[in-house]
Simulated assay, not measured.
Amino acid sequence: MSNTHLFMKSGHIKTPLQNGLGRFIPQLQRITFKFCKSRGGSRGVRDFIESDLMDFAIKNPGTAIYLKPQRHRSGIMVAEYLNGEKEHLSCHHFNKEEVFKWLSYLTTRSGIPAMRFHKYQHTDYPSIQGVWTPFTHQAPEINVAQFPHEILSKPVNLQPTATDTLLEIFKRTQIKESSEKPEN
């Protein structure tokens, strides 16, 4: 197990402004493409801008798109969200498909930074046995059996149920009462 979770923020799952309950509000406010007009590391960003940027702009009218050419720099996407968070993504030697995939990822995010989630329960003595599931103590033969199976389909509890016992007692008392009745 790595220790990277020690440096992450921690908290609970939050939904920005109850998003999706009334209508969906895209959280990506602005996207900035920084690229070089001649450097090879920015080639994928330039290809994306030439071919697919207009389609993205039409599909996402609530997102402002900025193009910022910079000399001798590799491509970078900077996403700014409604909650004020910024995310920088290096696009060094990406092709236009990779740029599109990462852009769709940034578009669908809420802007809340990745965090380590708290559990709602806490115990001072956590279990060392692992997580229980309904299949924990099942017979392993069930995994490869073809149902209906003669042996596995038999009832496990061969003792009569309480209802069966009561019905048997009732029948015995009925028979006993009918045999004790004097016939006139």
Rank of each mutant, 00 (worst) to 15 (best):
S2A: 06
D52L: 03
T173H: 01
S42D: 03
K171Y: 08
E87L: 07
L89P: 00
P134F: 04
F100W: 04
S90L: 06
F35N: 00
S104A: 04
R172T: 14
T123Y: 03
L103G: 03
F135L: 13
R43E: 01
S2W: 02
H12P: 00
K176M: 07
T165Q: 12
G62W: 03
N143Q: 13
N19I: 14
I112K: 04
I76K: 11
V78S: 05
S104N: 11
K101E: 11
E141L: 11
Y66N: 14
E97V: 07
T32F: 02
E85I: 05
M77P: 01
N95K: 10
K9T: 14
H122K: 09
P113F: 05
Q174W: 02
I142C: 03
K181Y: 05
N95C: 09
F35W: 01
E177C: 02
E168C: 14
H72C: 10
S2L: 03
W102V: 04
T133G: 09
Y105D: 12
R73E: 13
S110P: 08
G11S: 10
W132T: 12
L166N: 01
G20E: 09
Y66P: 00
L152N: 10
L6D: 13
F24Y: 14
L89H: 06
K101V: 01
S51F: 02
H122R: 08
V156G: 05
F48D: 03
L67R: 08
T15M: 09
L106C: 08
K176T: 14
K14W: 01
T173V: 08
V99I: 13
M8E: 09
R172L: 14
S74G: 07
K37R: 15
F117D: 05
I13K: 15
F33L: 15
Q129P: 00
K181E: 08
L53A: 10
H72P: 00
S38W: 03
P61R: 10
A139N: 15
S90V: 08
N157A: 12
